[in-house]
Structures are given as C-alpha cells and as structure tokens.
C-alpha cells in the first residue's frame, strides 16, 4: 500500500506559537489560569497571554529558579500556573525547584519548555536542550508530553490545564509540518498510529514525527512496510502500543530530538523488555553537544532526518532476518 498520499506535511506554525495561542484560549474560559515567564515571553510566545490578560501574567525576570517556585506557590493557592522559558533553562536552572516545590508535594504546576532540542540552530549548545525529557521523566508524578505539531500542541496545553498534577510540555522553536486536523483527540498516556505497517515500527515524538512519516514513505518505495507511531505522551507512556508494535512488527526504531542515552528510546526499550523484547535501533543525539548552524544544517549533521531514520530501519530489518 502506498502511504505517500496520507500526509501532505504542509508547513505549520512552530509549536511554541501554538502554545501561546492555546494559552490565550484557555485564559478566556478559565480565570484561574496564570502565566509566569523569565524575560523570554517574546520567544516563548507567552506574550500573547500577557497582552490579553496582563493582570494574570507575572514577569519574573531572568530568574528561573524563583519563577518555578513562585508558580508552585500560585498553584498551591488554587491557581493553574503555567511557567515557561526555554527548555534548557527552566529544566536545568529550575530542576531542584521542580523537584521540591512541584513534584514532591504533587503541586498542580504546568511547565512549558520551548526552544527544545537542537533545531533552534544558530544559538548553539548553551540554549539547546538535549536532556529535558529525561529530566522531566525523573520527576515522580510529572506528566510529560512532547507534541509534534500545531493541533497536538494545542491539545496538549488543554490536557495539561485539565489534568490535576504537575505537567511538562515540550515545545520547539522552528516551524513544524502539520500532521493532525484540528480537533483530533489526544489523551495523557496515549499515542497515535499515523501509518500502518508490519515490517517494523517507528516510534517518534516532536519534530521527528514528520521525519518518521517521510522515512516511511521512502521505505515503502523500497517495499518495506513501516508503522509510524506518534508517542506524544512520554510519561505515562503507551505501553500497549509499544507491546503491540513489538509483537506485530518484531522491530522498533525510536527517533527523537534528544540524547539517546537517556531518551525515550531507553523508556521504550524498558517497556519492550517487560512485555515483548524485540530488535531495536535508536535515532537521536549521540553523547555529544551540537553546535551553531541553520536548523536544517544542524539536524542534518547530528543525524535527525528521515534518511537517518530510514537507515536505522534498514539496519533493524537486517538484524531481524
């Protein structure tokens, strides 16, 4: 079955922009939503909310540790506080505050890290978050979401607001291809099978979902049938979908814009080990920091494109035989 017609992958907005718009929508219906930012609101796009609801927006200055704990205080006092900065800053500079003021007391704090991964390009490694999903998953009780496009980001922000408990949502800087029609349902702990296939399964999240679709199209032309799953819920993870992929395909490729050592690949492998062990290959950042360059050049050099996923898929299939 030719799969190439299923997804146009027309370019859409960056997921940070979708986040900013979703916050405004939430703000209109829920007066309890408040937002904190650490002098990056023009970049995280919380400035949309700040413009619409200035009395519910708190500028924290360049002080992420304080921002996270202020957000926890707001949430503990009954607000639904969203705190936002670049992923690299809010998770690394705010990690201990996320741990002690949000995760441990199970406070209803929402954390959105934008400019995640290495696709921010020119700014280079100090601003690139390659360990954020791992850090967020190291916070017991946190829900962790990594949406791929406009519709899924908007859904993720609404899910985060509705969920009682701490949530981390990962957003990106660059424009992202559209994958889902508006109104597609998402759920915490869910995943979406975007392409059916039985030779192997490609499990991706975030920016790599579109690349996984492109890889599957290439593989299809080679006579390889690849299932593509958007694993947008990182924690809790869709164990059933992983188990089914392992059982039905016998080979899994995990693709992510994150360090391989501590990324979603490791989490998927754990689930497969506990359910149906299978051949696995991993596409991600390999024990290194990246460098400056255009986003396109950086993701190519560090091996995060469809061709890298396709190569990993061929390797997995060769091992399977």
């Amino acid at each position: 079955m030719a799969v190439s017609t299923n997804y146009e992958l027309k370019m859409g907005p960056a997921t940070r922009e979708s986040f900013g718009k979703a916050l405004v929508e939430l703000g209109k219906t829920n007066p309890n939503i408040v937002v904190c930012d650490a002098d990056l609101s023009k970049s995280t796009n919380t400035n949309f909310f700040a413009k619409e609801f200035p009395e519910r927006f708190f500028q924290c200055g360049i002080a992420e540790a304080n921002m996270v704990a202020v957000g926890s205080g707001l949430s503990a006092a009954g607000k639904v506080a969203f705190v936002s900065s670049f992923s690299a800053f809010v998770l690394n500079k705010g990690f201990e505050q996320l741990r002690v003021t949000a995760a441990y007391p199970n406070v209803n704090l929402k954390v959105v890290g934008t400019h995640s991964g290495i696709s921010i390009g020119e700014d280079g490694p100090s601003q690139m978050s390659i360990e954020d999903l791992s850090l967020a998953c190291n916070l017991p009780g946190f829900t962790v979401l990594s949406p791929a496009d406009d519709a899924s980001m908007k859904a993720a922000i609404h899910l985060a607001a509705e969920h009682k408990g701490p949530v981390f949502v990962r957003a990106g800087r660059v424009k992202t291809p559209l994958i889902y029609p508006e109104g597609t349902p998402f759920r915490i702990g869910g995943s979406h099978e975007l392409l059916t296939g039985g030779d192997l399964a490609i499990l991706a999240n975030g920016l790599l979902v579109a690349e996984a679709i492109k890889a599957a199209v290439q593989l299809d032309s080679e006579g390889i049938s690849a299932r593509v799953i958007d694993l947008y819920s990182i924690k809790p993870i869709d164990r059933e979908a992983i188990d089914r992929a392992a059982r039905e395909c016998g080979a899994i490729v995990v693709a992510e814009e994150h360090l391989k050592d501590t990324g979603i690949g490791a989490r998927v492998a754990q689930v497969a080990a506990e359910t149906t062990p299978c051949i696995m290959e991993f596409v991600g950042i390999d024990n290194t920091y990246a460098e400056s360059g255009t986003p396109e050049a950086v993701v190519e050099k560090y091996g995060l494109l469809a061709k890298d996923i396709a190569a990993a898929a061929r390797k997995a299939l060769a091992r399977k035989k």
Partner: peptide, 21 residues
C-alpha cells in the same frame, strides 16, 4: 502550606501564594 527542607525555596513559594491572594 509547603514541603520544605531544601533551603532557599520557601520565600518564592510564599510569593506565589501572596500573588494568588
């Protein structure tokens, strides 16, 4: 009102509560 023990965080939490009030 808060789980504390890691020093330096209590005042920030309190500020969030004061803002909410």
């Amino acid at each position: 009102e808060a789980s504390t023990g890691s020093l330096g965080q209590g005042l920030s939490i309190g500020l969030g509560m004061a803002l909410a009030a």
